[in-house]
Simulated assay, not measured.
Amino acid sequence: MTLQTPPIKPARFEDGRTFTVAGLGERYGQATLQQIPTLWQRFEQHIGRVPGQVGGETYGVCCNGDGQGNFDYIAGVRVQDTDSLPAGFQHVELKARRYAVFEHHGSLDNLKATFQAIWKDWVPVSGETVANAPEFERYGQDFNPDDRNSVMEIWLPLESK
């Protein structure tokens, strides 16, 4: 008998507010996804030291997708403004909009499976339309990528109903 995992469901729906994320960014595709942790390692030394940083959460923002599987990814933090950012930093403004928020529990080694479940299992049957806008990962201040009990969130932008 094969055990089936329960279908993925959003933990909740949120009306997100406008805010800006700033950090280090690179362009990725399906062949280079495994390099994203290296970007986080480079950014880690800046956490808590970014001028204008707001709060202790970190964000992984996917934006500027080209429909071919390529996108920009920014490992960053929320900032008040972008005037004093260090050289080489990128930023993106996340507009106020409606989101489906999914939780990923445990190791980041399984994060790809969570994203696949969202896009291949939930989106096609959800009745929702994904907006052409950045999606992001939100890591709480106490998130530990090595702790199997850690939880992070994936915020998927939706068109308003």
Rank of each mutant, 00 (worst) to 15 (best):
A100V: 02
D15H: 10
G60R: 06
Y59M: 10
R49N: 11
C63L: 15
Q90W: 10
D15F: 01
R27P: 01
A11P: 02
A87T: 14
T58A: 05
A31I: 08
W40M: 07
Q68V: 01
A31M: 15
V21A: 00
Q35V: 03
V125C: 08
E14F: 03
A113K: 15
G23H: 01
V125D: 10
F89Q: 13
L108T: 15
R97Y: 00
V125L: 12
V79F: 03
V92F: 06
F102C: 09
R78L: 04
T18D: 02
K9F: 00
F89V: 10
G29F: 02
D109T: 14
I47E: 08
N70Q: 14
D83Y: 03
V92T: 13
F89N: 08
P10T: 08
R27T: 04
A31W: 11
G52Y: 01
N70W: 01
L24H: 02
L24R: 07
Y99F: 14
H46S: 14
F43I: 06
I8K: 12
A100L: 01
C62H: 14
Y28P: 11
Q53F: 02
G29Q: 08
V92E: 04
D72C: 06
P124E: 11
S84F: 03
T114H: 06
P6R: 13
Q116E: 11
G65L: 11
E93R: 15
F71D: 00
L39K: 13
R98C: 04
Q45F: 00
R42H: 10
V61C: 07
T58R: 09
P124T: 10
E44W: 07
I118S: 02
A113L: 15
A87G: 06
I8G: 05
P10N: 08
R78H: 08
Y28G: 11
A96H: 03
P86A: 06
D72Q: 10
E14M: 09
V79Q: 06
Y99H: 14
I8T: 14
L33A: 10
R12N: 08
A22V: 09
A22H: 07
